[in-house]
Design a protein around this nucleic acid. Sequence first.
DNA 1: ACCTGAACACCGTTCAAGT
DNA 2: ACCTGAACACCGTTCAAGT
Lengths: 230, 230
Amino acid sequence: MRRKAPLKVEKKERKKREPLSRERISSTALQLIDTHGLDQLSTRQIGRALGCEAMAIYNHFPSKDALLDAVVDRIMRKVEVPPPGAGWVERVRGFARSYRSLARIHPNAFPLVVIRRFDTEGTRMLLDAMFGALLEEGFEPRLAVQLFRTVGNYTGGTALDEIAGTNYAAKHASASQAVEGADAEQLARLSKVGPFLAPSHFDAIFESGLELILEGFQRLPTSPKANPAT
Amino acid sequence: MRRKAPLKVEKKERKKREPLSRERISSTALQLIDTHGLDQLSTRQIGRALGCEAMAIYNHFPSKDALLDAVVDRIMRKVEVPPPGAGWVERVRGFARSYRSLARIHPNAFPLVVIRRFDTEGTRMLLDAMFGALLEEGFEPRLAVQLFRTVGNYTGGTALDEIAGTNYAAKHASASQAVEGADAEQLARLSKVGPFLAPSHFDAIFESGLELILEGFQRLPTSPKANPAT
DNA sequence: ACCTGAACACCGTTCAAGT
DNA sequence: ACCTGAACACCGTTCAAGT
């Protein structure tokens, strides 16, 4: 695949390349993960995509691990916390939906987010935005943490499960046939619930669980009123 | 670290080694993950621990990937679904606690479980046990799936978050100081909620969220009665 | 049938050298 | 200050050969 262009052009092309930066590297890394999967990501592949040597990355990140943290940071910065006005229920719902939607946009990278979270500036900004919103809405700190963790963990766990389920459904022709090695009794039971395990039910199940949690918190006497406008 | 024992003994020792098997390999792999972490696991390390060459593993597993599936399977088989008698609420609660407790026993391996689930016999057995229990308790298939997914994903997401949080807390001296790069406003907010983010609150937050979900399902008119004995 | 040894095509990372 | 080239100590996996 080596180019055969005249020498003077080659030299010019080298100079024309945009300079490297943390932004450009982490953005390219995320793209590569999106298209080829997490385990295909290597410093050498990133170098190829950027038109530089793998080792150039180490001028901007101390390790591949730190680069992956930056990828997580990129994703976390995109999580949206709705502005005041619609009440805390709507704001928490919006956060949960936004978080889950990122798993659909970056299914190959999302496991990274759930496993390595924390310790990056984007994550800290999100935590601050979310807790700022909850305190502003009138939650006591303890209950704010409880609400955030419950909704966040439910959403993250569901998103991961959906990614695994979608991969599984894609591998096998139909998700309603997760039963290859099952005996007769198993088959009878699994054939009853199987259809509802299919990806077509993911949205409805996620939403109903989310509402159930939100309703639970609304019922707590220590929660602020759901919507100050009504 | 090479041994200096006489030659005839060496030969005998080689013969004495128990034969390899899928069980022995996956068990050793899980131990290595537990003690040295997931990214330190290599076929060569497993070989060393087993006293064989790395390539011997390929007589029992088609790939390292398949071996990791077997590790997930080992863990999933240990999840307990309580027997009938105490009512569905107690059985679902027992399942959730058992699932979470495995994350504490195998914090380095648990991310594998949540990300690769499915497609192994142990997982299928667990799904069957759980859905068998829920159908037996009187749930409609659709609601059984909804309950299982909601509780399972909440529990899995929480367990992962706790692992990440514990690692984070271990790295920094105190978990209540997740605020190094924060400005003054951020610091004010984070100092309010920070204490409740500490690992000492994990149990209480998990339990309260679990109860909230279980109460939500108990309230649904389509759910069976909570405890047939009362 | 099970295991080994050598080899292949990769890794992440270090370091001296280039500009 | 930023990047390269060569090198080091690893990977997962294949394959022919040994028993």
